[in-house]
Structure formats: C-alpha cells, structure tokens
Nucleic acid binder design. Structure first.
Lengths: 141, 141
DNA sequence: GTGCCACTTCAAGTCAACTTGAGGTCAAGG
DNA sequence: CCTTGACCTCAAGTTGACTTGAAGTGGCAC
C-alpha cells in the first residue's frame, strides 16, 4: 500500500503518517522510488495509536508501550498504571458532567447559589491543588 | 488579597493568574500601587475554571460560559451540550480503561491476538474516522 | 528614609502534535 | 518521450496554555 491508501483507510492525513514514521510509531516496509510502501498491518498499529490518543496518552507514552520487545512485565505494569489514571479522569469527567447537567436544569438564579454545584466546585479545587503538589514534587526529581 | 495569597489559596502560580486576568477569565478589584488586589470570590471562580479545565474545556469555552450575562437559555443549552460531549468522552475513556485493564491481565502472548482487545481497537479506529469527517466538514463552513 | 524584594509589564520562549510551504523527484498514462 | 501530479524532504509555522526573563516600581520593615 502506498501512503495515500493508508491515509484513506486509516482516516489520517499523509502528513500525520510521515510524522508518525519519523517518531518511530510506525514503519514503512520499503520504497518504490521515493514513495513509501506500507504493510497492511500498519492499519492495526494506527488503530492502536488512535485508541491511545483517544484515551489521552501522549505519543511518547504510546511509543513506550510498543517499543521494548523484552520487558513484558514493565509493559503490563504501565498498562495497569494507565488504567488507574484513566479511572481518575473518568471520575473527574463524571463529576463535571453531572455538574453541568444539573446546572443546565437548576432553577437557582446563579449556579453559585446552588449547593449541589458549589460542592462540585469545591471538589475540583482540591484536585487542582493535588495536581500542583504532584508537579512540584516531580520537579524535585 | 494580593496575588501571592490568591496563588497560595488557589494552588495556581501567580503567572497563571495574571494570564487569566489578561484573558478576561478573572478580574482584580483594584490596585495597591502596582499590585493587584483580588476579592475573595475570585477563588470560587478559579475553582470553576479548574473544574472546566479538568473536564477538558478550553479557556475560551469556559469564558463563554461566564461571559454573556444576558442569554441564560443559550448558556443552559451550551451546558447541556457540553454534558453530552462529556458523556461521549466518558464512554471512550471507559472502553479504553477496560481494554488496558484486560491487556494488563490477559495471557495472550501479544495483545493483538486477544479478540477482546482487537474489538476495542476497531472501535477506536471508527472514532478517528468520524472525527476526521467532522473536521473536514467544519472546514467547508 | 532607604533598601530589599515581591510585585509589575511586555516580549519571547516552550511543548506537543501536527500542518504547511517551497522546491525537488519519479511512476505512469498518453 | 514527456508531462503531470502524487509523492518526497526539510524547515518553518500554528495553536493553546502557559512560563520565563529582563527591566522597572513601590510597599513596608527597619
């Protein structure tokens, strides 16, 4: 397959495919003149990348999941850790969604006068501080 | 409160507070010489901003939720629409989390040999294509 | 009253993940 | 054979959300 076909079948622009190859996320199997040739399995790999992106992983994290080819347990630990992170995000998003849903329906003149909404806001505030502590701690390393 | 106290109490760096003020997301209530003075209610506002960010809203979207002061129903419709978007993200993240969790535990030698995992991957692929269609359509406007 | 240092402004830098543009190459159809 | 246009490379641009740096100001403890 040439790059145009991969683009068509994966839904990603050719520029992205070249970019991913440069980053080592995918590989072309050869050339025809200048033109890259891809094996069909690149599509699976691209789906995997898309999945990771959709779940909020960075390209670098995704690359790490693919790469080592020698430490399967590190790989599995990473997957599990990522799953935990996702759980966290899901909890946050769910709280936010409920808050929005409520705010859209709530009759309080200003959302801030609604106790439900205020509780939610307080929750988020705690999270930010936690995140900042984490970041500062990370800098010390 | 001066900016340092707001920073301390909100957990955000002063530079971020100045940045948010410049963007119109928060307001200082006056100055003492050059120094900004903030009302205590800015903390509530910052929590709200943090909540929005954590839920994946852009600063511009957050600003729109605050701003109009005249179209309460547009505001509510926007909130409801955002809640729906969040529902979508939550579904995706949940699928991803389950996939990761499974992959971390699954005994198949390579994740791609596991039918559960492959189904998940296919799901993500469809999503990318949908996103690209949406983007292309948006460009035509 | 005076010196320090937290505050100020404004411009520029950073980071991730791509996209865009200029200038060049070559496979294939006519 | 020759043109065409899809593909190539490499550098630079873009966007969002901030951060950093240099140069300046002024509140307040002494």
């Amino acid at each position: 397959m040439d790059i145009a076909e991969v683009a068509r079948r994966s839904g990603m622009p050719a520029s992205t495919l070249r970019f991913y190859e440069e980053k080592g996320l995918i590989r072309s199997i050869g050339r025809s003149g200048l033109r890259r040739l891809f094996d069909a399995d690149v599509l699976e790999r691209l789906s995997l990348i898309a999945l990771g992106r959709a779940a909020g992983l960075s390209l670098e994290e995704i690359a790490r999941m693919f790469a080592p080819e020698g430490q399967p347990q590190i790989d599995r630990a990473l997957l599990a850790a990522k799953a935990d992170e996702l759980d966290d995000s899901i909890r946050k998003l769910t709280a936010m969604r409920d808050g929005l849903r409520h705010a859209a329906a709530c009759s309080a003149p200003s959302h801030m006068e609604c106790p439900k909404f205020r509780r939610l806001v307080g929750l988020a505030a705690r999270d930010v501080k936690r995140a900042h502590r984490k970041k500062s701690a990370a800098k010390l390393v």
